[in-house]
Structures are given as structure tokens and as C-alpha cells.
Design a protein around this nucleic acid. Structure first.
Lengths: 200, 200
DNA sequence: CCGGTAACCATACCGCCGTATCGCTTCAGG
DNA sequence: CCTGAAGCGATACGGCGGTATGGTTACCGG
């Protein structure tokens, strides 16, 4: 066996370069040549680690949604230790998904690019569906926790309530991205929607 | 003066072809050649009516959002004649924005394509912002009508409430597009969000 | 009826795209 | 220590993108 390299690390390097370009220049401007330049490697290297462009797309998007999903998961779990009410903790977590600062904006743009591509690309649609399912699961779990503690009325459907909250976050993200973070108080828009579920 | 043609009609013909392609094949697959083929004309004709690709993009997107905006406006106005409560009429109108059938799906995909492009294209961002502002205005007007009639509590901010409702619709549209129209009852998800504003 | 302008098409051009291929370098295993 | 497989880069190639250009057709005004 010859010269070895950490495949996962190499792939991640390229995926991050892809994501930076997607966020800053848009999907139309992402090419192998530009990703290579951004990552400081040759075009050939990308070919070495990804069979074709679809493989790079898919990996880069999966990497992005995994990192986002992980962030939400640990934030939800960490929140359990603190004594804050469910609604406040959930709101804090969800506001982090909005493109209110530069870092979240990059994350949002990658997500948005994925969503747009997924509409015409079955493979990416799978990635997007799985990511959406993960998020839905986390929020649903919080809602059910709320039902046990009495913060949520027993009659509400946890899945539909979670869908409503997540939909608002997603649409709000689009509004923020379009109008800028200071155009309106996004948190104040989201709060009543969460409060309509967590009435305790 | 020689041979005349209706410029507006010609431009609309090309814009519609562009929109059909965007919806069915995705933005990446839309080229002058394909738009020309879809419209049944030559590539040169497109050049004759649009200076460059940006002009076609912008016109096609403006045409799409104008038609959508008109549809919502007349629906809101027509609803005033009927005796239904504000909340029900608003809900009916907003559900029409979701990609629940083939026709609305095309409309959604064009809107989604515009939103995605707008993130990296100032000119299109203007179009998207204006379209969003129009929609916000209509919903805001309905909310204020509701305040006058007592269906909406006096304390609520009409703009923020309208933003919340529209954000939910937009995010819900993404969910429906990803999971299909039968994956979950979209109308039932949206209803409580509207009902949280129209409490009368 | 005829000159001229606009409508429209065909095609040529150049650049960038993704991909294929080849060559050089580096190092683990026998 | 030397051999060969993997890491990696340079470059070539075919295709398709948007755009430029020239020609042909159809029609209005005088």
C-alpha cells in the first residue's frame, strides 16, 4: 500500500470549498475549476475523490445538512439541562436557523441551494427529505415533551404543530435573506407561532 | 414602417416558454436554445426581443410574479362580496399558493427559482422583494380589516402577523414540494396559524 | 408599386464547462 | 531497496453555453 491520505478529511475540504462558493457566488458560478481554486488544489484532485459532479454535489449538501442537524440536536439536548421553558428553548434554537448573521447566512444559502436543486434531482431530494425529517423529529419531540409537562394542550397533533413551526422558520428565513436581518424583528414574528402551540 | 409585431405578446410568449422549462427541467437546464425550441421560434428571435439573458430572466420572473399577485388580489377582493369570515377566505386564498396540484406546482417552481436566483442577483432581488411586498400588503390589509370587525385582537401588529402567516405559507410550500401533496394535510397545518391571528 | 425598416432565421464564434488521459511524486510492503 | 499502487497535477478534448453577424422575408408609407 502506497502513500495514504485521509479520504474523509480530503472530501470535507472540497465540500467546504464548494459550500463557500455556493454561498458567495451562487450555484450557477460553481464549477470544478473554481472549487479547486477555492480549495487550493488541482481539478484532478476533485476527480480523484469524486466520480463526477453529482457525487460532489451530494456529498457537499449532505455535509452541510449533517452539520446543521447536529447543531440543532445538541442545542435541543443541552437545553434540557437548563431550566428554561420549552417554548423559549425551542425559539432560541430555531432563531439560529435564520440568516441573521454572516455565518448563519452561509448556512442558509447552502440549504436554499439544496432545496432549489432538489426539485429537479431525485438524489438531492432524498438528502433534503432526510434533513427535513430529522428537523421535524427534533421539534416533534420537543412538542411531545411539552404535552407531558402540560405546556402543550393534549389535543394538538405534535407532527402537524412541528410542521407549522418549521414552515414558519423556513419561510421567515427566505424573508430575512431577501430583506436583510434588520428589516423586521424576525424573532418577534416567530414567537407567537411557537406560543400558539406552547400555551402553558 | 414595416411589418409590425406585438412586442408585449411576443415577450410574453417567450417568458411563458422560459417558465415552463424552469418548472419542468430546472434552472440549470434553461438555455436560449431550449427556450427557443419550447416556444417554437429561433434563437435569434429571443435576441431580437431581449438584449441578453438577464433581460429575459428578469422579464420572465416579473411576468410570473405579476400573474400570481393579480390572482391573489382579485381573490381577496372577490372574497369580500361573499359572507365567509375573514379567516376562511384568507385560508382559501393562501392554500392556492401551495403546490398541491400540477398548475400551482409550476407556479411554485418558478417562484422558488426566482427566490434562489435573487440571492445572488441584485436585479432579481428587486423583483422578489416587490412581489413579497405586494403579497404582504394584501395579507396585511385583510388582517386590518379583521381588526376593524373584531375578528383580530386590537393589540396585534398587522404587518408582523401578516409576515408570520406568509412565512408559514412559503415554508409549507417547500415542504409540500419536497414530500408531495399527499404526505400531510397542508391546509390543516396552515389553519391554526391563521386562527392564531383571527381569534374571533 | 417600390423602397426601406422591422421581424425573423441560420450559422459562426469564442469561452468555459465536465471529463479523460498521462505523467510525476511519494511512500508502504516484501 | 526497489517496486508498484495511490496521491496529485497538467493538459487535452468534445460539447454546449451566450452572443455577434449577415441574410431573407414580409409589410407599411408614400
Amino acid at each position: 500500500m502506497p502513500r495514504v491520505a485521509d479520504h474523509d478529511q480530503r472530501r470535507a475540504l472540497l465540500a467546504r470549498a464548494f459550500q463557500r462558493l455556493l454561498a458567495t457566488r451562487g450555484f450557477a458560478d460553481v464549477s470544478f475549476a473554481r472549487v479547486a481554486a477555492e480549495a487550493g488544489v488541482s481539478v484532478g484532485l476533485i476527480q480523484h475523490y469524486f466520480t463526477d459532479k453529482d457525487a460532489l454535489l451530494r456529498f457537499a449538501y449532505e455535509d452541510a445538512v449533517n452539520r446543521m442537524s447536529d447543531r440543532v440536536r445538541v442545542r435541543v439536548r443541552n437545553g434540557e439541562a437548563a431550566g428554561l421553558p420549552f417554548a423559549d428553548r425551542l425559539l432560541d434554537t430555531l432563531v439560529e436557523l435564520l440568516p441573521l448573521d454572516a455565518e448563519r447566512d452561509v448556512e442558509y444559502r447552502v440549504r436554499q441551494g439544496l432545496q432549489a436543486q432538489a426539485l429537479h434531482h431525485p438524489g438531492l431530494a432524498d438528502v433534503a427529505r432526510r434533513a427535513g425529517g430529522d428537523l421535524l423529529g427534533y421539534v416533534r419531540a420537543v412538542v411531545e415533551r411539552g404535552k407531558e409537562s402540560g405546556d402543550v394542550a393534549p389535543g394538538v397533533d405534535a407532527v402537524l404543530a412541528a410542521r407549522a413551526i418549521l414552515a414558519t422558520v423556513q419561510g421567515l428565513a427566505d424573508q430575512v435573506a431577501l430583506s436583510g436581518p434588520d428589516a423586521f424583528p424576525a424573532r418577534d414574528v416567530l414567537r407567537p407561532v411557537v406560543a400558539a402551540v406552547f400555551t402553558g
